[in-house]
């Protein structure tokens, strides 16, 4: 194999501005300002993540997780506050970042075949044909879809479609991957297998991943660190370090006392957030 992604990322390993590091400072966002339907979604969110880290964001429903992700990715400008990716302010979507959306049905292009969907973003960045083909092949292999390259998304199951959109993100080779409840609309069986596909790929490719979910189990199972948000206007209530060793296993890991303990802690925090008992937790 000619391309080894681990090398390309280990080149700029030095300094605080390592590739894939993200810092959000005092993010506020208000929808429909000045109208009767004004909604204060983000109420001063501050957190940061390091290169190669897998961070999960959880919170009660309607707490503005999606808003946060849209602000972090540059799809939307926050009302106030700043986002820095590798030390550079995020104003539009940066080159080294991309998103995986929850609704795979609507984020894959149904008129492009699977391989063309994965290749589509690469054609923009002046990458040669040979390398594009290789990246597509490798990304599809990573998510276990090698045999389905020439199908249309409409011919695949929901779980497979979401794997295609993960493959598309992988082939793009961002330093930072943002995922917005990517597994929320697939069945439980598929979900578990997608989680493991993601962990495996992450272990192999060492991306920095920010994973938004409302599923507590999922956040603890996947992440190095869980950031718990409060109700809207949301702020960071707590950050919980998950020091469960990797590789993790759907059955064994979830049966360990540490896992059970952490899960209960996150659940308590979210419940308190829901009842409004939570207080702002200063970022470390």
């Amino acid at each position: 194999m000619s391309i080894e992604p681990m090398h390309e990322e280990s080149v700029d390993d030095s300094g605080a501005e390592a590739s894939g590091s993200l810092a959000a400072t005092d993010l506020h966002h208000v929808y429909g300002r000045g109208t009767s339907e004004e909604h204060h979604a983000l109420g001063g969110i501050t957190f940061s993540m390091n290169k190669g880290e897998f961070v999960a964001i959880v919170g009660p429903s309607g707490c503005g997780k999606t808003t946060l992700l849209r602000c972090l990715s540059g799809l939307m400008a926050p009302t106030s506050g700043s986002v820095m990716l590798e030390g550079v302010p995020v104003e539009s979507v940066p080159k080294d970042l991309t998103l995986v959306f929850q609704d795979y049905r609507r984020s894959l292009y149904p008129w492009l075949r699977v391989d063309a969907n994965v290749e589509f973003p690469l054609k923009n960045s002046g990458i040669g044909k040979a390398e594009r083909t290789e990246r597509v092949r490798q990304a599809l292999e990573d998510v276990g879809l090698s045999g389905h390259a020439s199908k249309y998304p409409g011919q695949l199951s929901g779980g497979m479609q979401q794997r295609v959109s993960i493959a598309r993100a992988l082939a793009y080779r961002p330093h930072l991957l943002l995922m917005d409840e990517p597994f929320a609309s697939v069945d439980a069986q598929t979900r578990a297998s997608l989680e493991d596909v993601l962990l495996e790929v992450w272990a192999r490719r060492r991306k920095t991943v920010l994973f938004v979910t409302h599923d507590i189990d999922e956040s603890v199972y996947l992440a190095d660190r869980v950031v718990v948000l409060s109700n809207a206007p949301s702020h960071v209530m707590a950050e919980i370090v998950v020091d469960i060793p990797r590789p993790r296993d759907q059955i064994e890991t979830k049966a360990t006392p540490e896992f059970v303990e952490l899960r209960a802690e996150v659940a308590r925090l979210i419940r308190d957030a829901g009842t409004g008992a939570g207080k702002p937790a200063g970022d470390s």
Partner: peptide
Amino acid sequence: DPLYLDTATAYRISRSRRLTHV
């Protein structure tokens, strides 16, 4: 679908390709 356009933005698809391909 607005998500088609968001996806194109997330992958920094150029204006002309967004027009012809999305």
